[in-house]
Design a protein around this nucleic acid. Structure first.
Lengths: 115, 115
DNA sequence: TAAATAGGATACCAAATGGAATCATTTTAG
DNA sequence: CTAAAATGATTCCATTTGGTATCCTATTTA
């Protein structure tokens, strides 16, 4: 029943600013390694490594075309991540999260629509 | 105009499974270091370090009470993260993201509801 | 076919990380 | 006051990371 997909590779991939930047760029169009590198201020080899990490997180795909490799965004892989984070939505706009337990007996007290 | 908050510390904090687990636990109630450690299968010192990383990401707060320190969730800090990810929402459920550019001249072609 | 292009694959490095071990400090129980 | 409880602070260690430098392979294309 494929419990929950392994979020680790995706969270790991998102933990680096260069990789997040690459994702944004790929949301516009697929790009070659050289093109991506042009924006990254580091060597091709370094960018390539980032692409591999992104691929491990399933956040991008790569396809070979002639002598170049086009990387493209796989935004769907972000869904499980957002889903994980959404769990905490009910704790937003209130610092009562930590008191949740303490206040459980007052559950009908209306917490008016925050801001 | 406080452009965008620095997402790095938060993304960094979220990149570790132990820390994500701690966040889930803290969503129930605030906990002491000893309590958290009880679930983590590692030393107090190690857990303490994770708490510091979470605090750097502003995902938790700590308050001292007598000889113990209570850590509590600050779910609000997840908002900017979700917001960043939401940017990609328009690319979900379609693998056309990478072709967005290529297809730009066909923009009136109706892309019927995917799936 | 030979040179130029675009990428892969490795080896190597310094710095950051995850964790354990230890020792010091503060608070509460007797 | 004194010991136990709870945490903080430091040091040390192995592994992972982010990057560079190099060398090698596959495509083009002149």
């Amino acid at each position: 029943m494929s419990a929950s997909p392994d979020l680790q590779p995706a969270f790991r991939a998102l933990a680096d600013p260069t990789r997040r930047d690459i994702l944004k760029r790929l949301s516009a169009r697929e790009m070659t390694l050289a093109e991506i590198t042009a924006h990254c201020d580091m060597t091709r080899a370094a960018v390539k490594k980032h692409l591999v990490v992104l691929q491990d997180g399933n956040l991008i795909q790569m396809r070979r075309s002639g002598r170049e490799t086009l990387s493209s965004l796989n935004a769907d892989a972000l869904k499980p991540v957002v889903n994980w984070l959404t769990y905490f939505e009910s704790f937003w706009d209130t610092h009562l999260g930590a008191l949740h337990d303490t206040l459980s007996d007052l559950k009908d007290t209306e917490l008016e629509d925050k801001e």
